[in-house]
Nucleic acid binder design. Sequence first.
DNA 1: CTGAATCCGCTACGATACTG
DNA 2: CAGTATCGTAGCGGATTCAG
Lengths: 164, 164
Amino acid sequence: MEDGTSRSLGYCVDTDADYDARQWDTREDCEVRQILDRIADKWSLLVIALLDRRSLRFTELRREVDGISQRMLARTLRHLERDGLVTRTVYPTVPPRVDYELTPLGATLHETIRALVSWTETHQNEIATARSAYDVRIADEQRQAEREAERRETMGRRVSASRG
Amino acid sequence: MEDGTSRSLGYCVDTDADYDARQWDTREDCEVRQILDRIADKWSLLVIALLDRRSLRFTELRREVDGISQRMLARTLRHLERDGLVTRTVYPTVPPRVDYELTPLGATLHETIRALVSWTETHQNEIATARSAYDVRIADEQRQAEREAERRETMGRRVSASRG
DNA sequence: CTGAATCCGCTACGATACTG
DNA sequence: CAGTATCGTAGCGGATTCAG
């Protein structure tokens, strides 16, 4: 499971450091990529962000994370727990109560996630602008291409006519 | 497409700022979540990270990003281009050559991505440890539960015997 | 209330073939 | 070389049901 072999620790140091020295291992089975895929998924980010403020119960999370299914929330939480990012505390009351809380490790992760979210918030307008600009450009190019095709079509007919 | 309405700019400010003032909008149709889902996906992170060092051609990227299919690379690049994160430069030579390069906006994003990758590299051992600990604990609990079930089974038989 | 388990549609993805 | 188009499939994820 943990395969603490020496093959790779998830990153690699460029042996010939041409320009910037360190480049991270992009291999598919690389540990870093696996962790990244896990934490950078749709729901984990949200859950971690929400748990930063205070511990939450299962249902509270379910309510706060719009659109998540029970299944995916449970799955996400189990993954986060397994990775040591959240703790799961069961109070043997009736009805049962389960609290989820960020571990110190999870808290450090939240810092960088917050940076990512901040970036998104800061630049969402730029992105929206870029998107519409792109869409307009593509639409233009398509119209252009159609005109071009039509023109070539006409030329082709003319050539055929002169040939025939 | 850009719907620059006033409904939501992707974040919201808590009207009653009980504790921490700002909480980002977790609604599913929220702009921030959409952007986040887009940039925090499996391939975008890798592509942006690779393009930080220098511009790359399509095939170079394909080679460097282990495991990506032609289809997904093309799609990812188009998304990034649309979001204004990379530029696509076509050299009308033969054979054709297309260079992809990070825009200034993309470069700023790479900063926060680098932070995320760094976090992963720094803490991957902790995560690996947490994982094996979790796996062991789960296995133990399962064995425990099995013993428990067996014990109850025996008890049940004894009760049945005394009843019968 | 907090899940686990089952069923299942859907689509995202990879493989392949084709175009310019 | 740099893609698009088409197709088949595995697995994601939602709805539902059951259990503790």
